[in-house]
Design a protein around this nucleic acid. Structure first.
Lengths: 208, 208
DNA sequence: GTCTATATCATGATAGAC
DNA sequence: GTCTATCATGATATAGAC
């Protein structure tokens, strides 16, 4: 299943990942991938029949990597607040290790989402149980009442978005100070956890 | 400055906006823009020397439209909480009217951010006064202490991100039920305002 | 499996008639 | 200003030798 290191196939996959992530499907050039892999164009087509196939292989690999780590947390039986905290930690952990994935996914999502849809279906991704889980915690009074979908989207937005807009964030807010940007990302997990918990904690003081 | 309606130039700009926003710079085809405008390719080059020039004209127009509406709110002299509420309202208002802009900007941002940087510089966009403004409110005890940059990013993330991932949100969460998705977007402003205010309100009960 | 050489095609851009 | 016809380039993809 997984190509061995040092094999040509492995080298192609690594090269393709770099180029596709940097340039996207339409921006990537087969010549560039071949150069990066140290082989010629013809070999790309020998191993992967077309550019599209190669692209799908890369995309699929990225999802396969990140997805299980997150579902594992979501299916634990912790209480809702610590589950949220664990989710944010796990998510930010992935994002800091692979900061260019959100930009890549975002670009392809808005170019042609059908490939992503296929993967979603293939992996049987279904957020409904998560929403139900959140709703139960609300009904038990553990956190404030709100639409679970909005809560989930709020959390995911705060995790992913700063990575998806990395270039503009770096330029506008941090004046290209890379270290400051990395520090900022490193702080995100704690900030988001605190922010979310504050927002959803049940407060008996104010009954609107 | 602005092209008159019914003029060829205007038709080109409208067509180009549609195609560029839908397909992005690299995905868009000059032929498709010409077809959409009801003219031929040669005329595109007569009015705008190159594809790149045409693209810049469109991109610039989009920023010019949205940016002033937001800065106006930010420079008002309301107190911080109502300023945040006004900002969220104004932002969501723009996004609901032009739901495909975030996906477009996100794609181009991750393809070649230099164009955006130029616009940022040209418009003199600088978030520092906003951060300072937030910090002052914190020091006055109006809201809890936190890094203003994180607070700003949190708010913007929750506003924009759901639009940037519209296709996957529509498919995964709403099973392609367009009406449900529109309702969801319509609820966002109220949800975000409440969420943020809850998160940053000063709570004397719990002193951690 | 790997290479060189080439086929095939689509695109952005231009020349020149009207 | 608008059109038709065409160029030049660069892309994916394939054929065939080794």
């Amino acid at each position: 299943m997984v190509a061995k290191k040092d094999s040509t196939e492995y080298k192609i996959l690594e090269a393709a990942k770099n180029v596709f992530v940097a340039k996207g499907m339409e921006g990537a050039r087969m010549q560039e991938i071949a150069d990066e892999a140290g082989i010629n164009k013809a070999l790309l087509h020998y191993y992967f029949r077309s550019k599209e196939r190669l692209f799908e292989a890369i995309f699929s690999e990225i999802i396969k990597y990140a997805f299980p780590k997150l579902t594992k947390v979501l299916h634990s039986d912790s209480d809702i607040t610590s589950k949220i905290e664990q989710f944010v930690d796990a998510y930010l952990n992935i994002l800091i290790k692979h900061p260019f994935i959100p930009g890549f996914v975002m670009k392809e999502l808005n170019r042609d989402p059908s490939g992503l849809f296929k993967l979603v279906t293939k992996f049987g991704i279904d957020p409904q149980p998560v929403f139900k889980n959140i709703k139960e915690a609300m009904d038990k009074g553990e956190i404030v009442q709100m639409d679970p979908r909005h809560l989930a989207i709020n959390i995911i937005s705060m995790c992913v978005f700063p990575f998806a807009v990395r270039p503009i964030l770096s330029f506008v807010v941090f004046k290209d100070d890379k270290q400051a940007l990395e520090n900022f990302y490193a702080e995100r997990a704690e900030v988001i956890k605190k922010f979310v918990i504050n927002a959803i904690v049940v407060n008996n003081e104010e009954n609107e």
